[in-house]
Design a protein around this nucleic acid. Structure first.
Ligand SMILES: [Zn+2]
Ligand SMILES: [Zn+2]
Ligand SMILES: [Zn+2]
Ligand SMILES: [Zn+2]
Lengths: 168, 168
DNA sequence: TGTTGAATTGTTATAACGTATCATTTAGGA
DNA sequence: TCCTAAATGATACGTTATAACAATTCAACA
């Protein structure tokens, strides 16, 4: 978790075609390195997320897959998305029940999102922000923060001690 | 958003009956001050959240309401929960699609949650944490963090400039 | 090269979460 | 008392997500 430089994306214009192909190449390489199977559906789902360059619901992704004959039912989309999230190629944006391609694949980071409440566009910043860092990231991309949400997931003491499930 | 002292709750034993009645009294006072209508359903939903002292799904809350004849359909629960969230008496935990009574009502704060991935219990910390503060909060209640999520909601430049909706 | 076990995908069905809409009731001010 | 806005009741529906099991594909290995 390095204190990396800020690179908010998602509210800026950029060389999009280049950004898609670069990210796909990186993903390809990462999967090869890690011995992961970057199958056609998974590849295509990441590409869709990159092309849209915004958070997409699983059913939005599914429609695209269906249109291309790559899978017809919800599990196809969820499985591919889960693979991408599990392997650091995409993130789930809880606030929107949606998914977005990771803007910093390969960098070990904690995602932080700036989510526009009107257009639902999402910018990803690169590090767990202190208040100042988050505010600075928002300023840098002309984003006005209304509300911040921090959610840490893990295990409490009782659950680490006990066989899983006995705490609930 | 003051840098308030840490008070993680939710993984600790405490005088629960007292904590419920205190919180209800605080809520009562806050609603009176603000001219809000703290109706029976709203009151009871907050009480349920406080009694459970953990995050509850809207349908869990609804079952309780139904058992008590206080509302039979989903909107009854969602309306009460939305009221509590809007007025700082509860929070929505996006990660769980669930709701939890605020541990610090009246203090203007940004909620940060420690969510156990096994038992789904939730501890609320009191301030937007820098990395160190969050880690310290977790240590203080014997919570092992796997994953942190930061979500900032607001408006991007284009959406502030344009009539709402034109950005989506 | 044929076997085999694990991972992936196909398919059906259903669970869980959330909201739009409109009718009805309630509370509080003119 | 009458009027209005807020809150609630009720129906129906939309969206998001997963369980379960069958079929297929893939890579490792005998
Ligand atoms: Zn990322
Ligand atoms: Zn709170
Ligand atoms: Zn636990
Ligand atoms: Zn916007």
């Amino acid at each position: 978790m390095p204190d990396a430089p800020l690179e908010p994306l998602g509210f800026e214009r950029h060389d999009h075609k280049h950004c898609v192909s670069d990210a796909m190449a990186t993903a390809e390489a990462r999967c090869a390195d890690a011995g992961l199977r970057f199958t056609p559906v998974r590849r295509r789902v990441l590409e869709i997320l990159l092309e849209e360059h915004q958070a997409m619901g699983a059913y939005d992704v599914l429609s695209r897959l269906q249109a291309e004959g790559l899978g017809a039912q919800p599990p196809a989309a969820y499985r591919a998305l889960d693979f991408l999230v599990a392997n650091g190629l995409a993130h789930r944006v809880e606030r929107l029940n949606a998914f977005v391609a990771c803007a910093h694949p390969g960098e070990d980071h904690i995602p932080a999102f700036l989510i526009c409440r009107d257009c639902n566009r999402v910018a990803e910043t690169v590090t767990l922000p202190s208040r100042d860092v988050l505010i600075e990231a928002a300023r840098a991309c002309d984003f006005e923060i209304d509300k911040v949400l921090v959610e840490a997931e893990g295990r409490c003491g009782p659950c680490r001690d006990a066989p899983a499930g006995s705490g609930a």
